[in-house]
Design a protein around this nucleic acid. Sequence first.
DNA 1: CATTATTGCTAATTCGTTTTAGCCATTGTT
DNA 2: AACAATGGCTAAAACGAATTAGCAATAATG
Lengths: 334, 334
Amino acid sequence: MASLKDLAKLVGVSPTTVSFALNGRSREMRISEELTERILEAAKQLGYQPNNIAVALRTGQTKIIGLIVEDIANHFFSNLAKTIEDEASRFGYRVVYCSTENMAGKGDELINMLQRQQVDGYLITPDASMEERMTALLKRDIPVVQIDRYLPGLDCPYVMVDNHQGVVSGVEFLLKKKYTRISFVTVDLDMIQMKERKLGFVETMTAHGLFKNKKQLLELPYSSVREDAVERIQAYLEKEKPQAVLFATNYVGILGLRAIKNLQLNVPDDLAVVCFDDNEVFDLCTPAITAIRQPIESMARGAVKILMGEMGVAKKSARKQVKIQTSIVRRDSA
Amino acid sequence: MASLKDLAKLVGVSPTTVSFALNGRSREMRISEELTERILEAAKQLGYQPNNIAVALRTGQTKIIGLIVEDIANHFFSNLAKTIEDEASRFGYRVVYCSTENMAGKGDELINMLQRQQVDGYLITPDASMEERMTALLKRDIPVVQIDRYLPGLDCPYVMVDNHQGVVSGVEFLLKKKYTRISFVTVDLDMIQMKERKLGFVETMTAHGLFKNKKQLLELPYSSVREDAVERIQAYLEKEKPQAVLFATNYVGILGLRAIKNLQLNVPDDLAVVCFDDNEVFDLCTPAITAIRQPIESMARGAVKILMGEMGVAKKSARKQVKIQTSIVRRDSA
DNA sequence: CATTATTGCTAATTCGTTTTAGCCATTGTT
DNA sequence: AACAATGGCTAAAACGAATTAGCAATAATG
């Protein structure tokens, strides 16, 4: 591929001049308009593309941000990623994304990899295992923003949904519909966002004098196999026979719907359903599933904005701990 | 971050020696075992990470492949991307992915961007607008493999599904169930994979003397708005009242289900449904949707393997035009 | 007319690696 | 004892751009 040097040779000037001309520094560097014109012309004609690798090495900036999510094939994360990519591109940044796949150690490995790639900043949905490496990044003043959750031990910006309020509104929605025996099906993941959701449920139910005992909670082992999880939900529903159930995540919701289908329960008459985090699936289910929607766009935008602030590309954000409100998408399942 | 030079200084040897030691060339380059040990030790202690940017500049290899898909938020593509990423990592390659979002010109822009990033190879789901730029890549002997479809004018490897056979099997499946008034709902996209699917339908129906007229085909404008498309399908189904419908893509299928739901049709009694390309949604629908499954994993694996062959990383593949067979996932909708 | 400013451009260094060519000391060969 | 072979290491160049410092020619100034 044609290099800047080739281009210089072609025009018959020094690489320095070409560099100035291409970077719009002609005026400042007193390159005559006529020469600048000729250089630009030649660049176009050669189809010159700057070698970003060389630029990055020289400038120390790759103009790339690293995005680490749990699983890029997951609806929530792939949409998040897409919006982040769009948003970042408006600042001239590219995004490279990677999934931890919930594998121990994978997060660390990915941070290492992105570090070797010299990304300029990080957008991370963290888990506890990454705390050490993230601390190291922060100590070296490398811009990091957490999304969807945060590690309480870290002094690091985050953008997430107000999980507590989200669940509270979901429970209250069910209460208004006169359901009283409500269950909460979640995953036993020790992350802040899951804790907040659980707390939201327990507190609201307790406040209404409806939290009788722990059997209203089903906590699935985080790393259980799909089939096992479905079976556990099935067994639970059969035994406890709640009037309504609130699924704590999209993924759990899908497992739950599978279980409900296996049991041939009639929704919402036998069992009302609300799911935290919406999914294009839900609209097509019969009946369509009511969900607590996370505003994916706002989250992505917010996170990118803060990150750009940290990187000195945009105005530094004042608020660096952002919780965005959820909304209820009323459908037919409750 | 610590550089190789820092490391050399710390150990008290030349950068050359350190480079050899870290790259496992100690034996070959006669670096004593004792010194090698000391270097490795110091590297670990410093937490040394090679700067891939510098490596890439020097070696001319980024160990990155560029993946261009239509829309990363789409179930099919995000799963494809995920498998490709896994597969590539087994060869020591990273993947950066981008979506064309069906926007004119975006594909070219993305190829440019990846070119500037100096990616070592390309995996592309092409559209006609990219032909020129892809030709340019091929002329420069840059490895490119097409996925999911191909441009007939290009001498370039591809991995895709046998669309023709897939639709044939779908139609025959419906015929075996004694449906005779079958419709095919597709999108008026002038790409080979869509042509093959349409042809598969028309040919099979004709062979059985069941292709009466063009009204058995509904071709939606490619870039129509979601709501418009749903409405058109609705109107079509009401007017033509087919016994069974075969949706040509996942996306069209979802629109179709929406339409069917709006019409409150009873599936499969009022209308049987089969969709080309499976989706996790389909299993949860009531009734669950029968689908023609594309083996995403095989496609991803096949494409990566050919690409690695082209890049000289793996054995060069003999077959470079691969069509993979589909299978029918029998559920309740037909 | 001598000095200083300005204009228009370039040589040379740098970023962090890899790699080629080669240096010095020791050992082996005749 | 002279010479080659080997062992153990390093100096320097290169990749492709950005940038700093500066050079020559012309114009402006007193």
